[in-house]
């Protein structure tokens, strides 16, 4: 018990808090090169200290509000730790008409105990619009996705910016990273035609660099760039919408330069290339943390506990005397003015 009491020391609390302040300061701007221990150690010290205090300190465990607050703080630390062990973070680029499957995910980061039902997540990317204010300042994104309706079939949902698509706990956020893609068909001199989709760099971020190379299976590499008309304006508001955009495909191969409109075909070395149509792709950030909802409730519960405690403390001790003094003062003021 003596050992527990020493662990519950308020001086240790202060040391832990100062360590946490230093750790937080070092973590500033989410430095990736910093070891996680700068936060884990002070949080561990504070958790042990807090647990001991909850068990031994009667000022905490005999006052319901204060107890709720401190247990809540402990709960936040535990839930955050669980969240880090089970989290999932990735990016993906989905073209219009493409169905999401886990194999299209990029830059995957996840906790060692992550076990979500990502294979149960299904949706199909639709068209999108992005509003821009004058000066190329990005506004609202409206991205259409088709998801399974509860009664069967598909239903359309609009997501974007602060409205993520949430499926099986996985949250899909639209990002600034989006652009155009082209649907191409390569018909070799012999053999069946091959249709593929090629994404071009992010737009309008790289509006000056809309080029790429496509190498169909068993075919030659085909270099091309896209001459776009999207309505982009620097000095006025405009809306990015692939449905209202035009793109001329400029194919270069050796000394040959061909301009293709959607539906056009060009004979090039080894076969023919057909530019089917212009399409678009949207970049998503994918995030999963099974503790999010619990974190919210525990944090609110902790603050409610703290508020209850202060309400009781203030109501019983200080406010009556302060307000009484104020009332007395008002009366004396009235007498003075009479």
């Amino acid at each position: 018990m003596t050992f527990l009491r020493s662990l519950a020391s308020l001086r240790l609390t202060l040391v832990g808090m100062l360590m946490l302040a230093v750790g937080a300061g070092l973590t500033y701007d989410n430095r990736l090169d910093l070891p996680v221990w700068v936060l884990v150690v002070p949080l561990a010290v504070l958790s042990v200290n807090l647990s001991a205090a909850i068990l031994t300190n009667e000022r905490i465990n005999r006052q319901f509000g204060l107890l709720t607050f401190h247990v809540g703080l402990l709960g936040i630390v535990v839930l955050t730790a669980i969240g880090r062990l089970a989290y999932f973070d990735a990016h993906t680029e989905l073209a219009e008409g493409q169905e999401f499957t886990p194999d299209v995910l990029l830059e995957i980061k996840k906790g060692p105990f992550h076990s979500g039902r990502l294979d149960q997540v299904h949706f199909v990317q639709g068209p999108y619009t992005v509003e821009y204010a004058a000066g190329m300042q990005r506004g609202l994104t409206h991205s259409q996705v088709a998801i399974a309706a509860p009664e069967g079939g598909l239903m359309t949902k609009i997501v974007g910016d602060d409205r993520p698509l949430v499926l099986e706990g996985y949250r899909f956020y639209t990002t600034f990273n989006k652009g155009f893609s082209v649907i191409l068909t390569w018909k070799p001199l012999s053999g069946p035609p091959i249709t593929g989709r090629v994404n071009l760099p992010s737009y309008p971020l790289y509006d000056y660099k809309q080029d790429n190379t496509w190498t169909p299976q068993d075919g030659p590499p085909i270099k091309f760039w896209l001459q776009l008309e999207t309505g982009l304006r620097e000095d006025a508001a405009w809306t990015l919408d692939a449905r209202n955009s035009r793109g001329v495909l400029v194919v270069t191969q050796k000394d040959q330069r061909v301009e293709l409109n959607p539906g056009d075909t060009a004979e090039i070395e080894g076969g023919s290339l057909r530019y089917e149509r212009l399409s678009s792709w949207m970049g998503y950030k994918v995030y999963y943390d099974p503790t999010l909802r619990w974190l919210f409730f525990v944090a609110i519960l902790a603050v409610v506990g703290l508020a209850m405690h202060y309400w009781r403390v203030m109501g019983s001790r200080l406010w009556p005397s302060v307000l009484q003094e104020s009332r007395d003062d008002d009366k004396s003021q009235e007498r003075g003015s009479n």
Partner: peptide, 30 residues
Amino acid sequence: QDAWGRYWQWDALETSAFGTWLALGVGIHL
């Protein structure tokens, strides 16, 4: 969480806000 896809990332404002919250806690415990 809704806007940027993360509830906390130790950016300039978050770090500073947490520092102030902690300072309040330190003050009360002191």
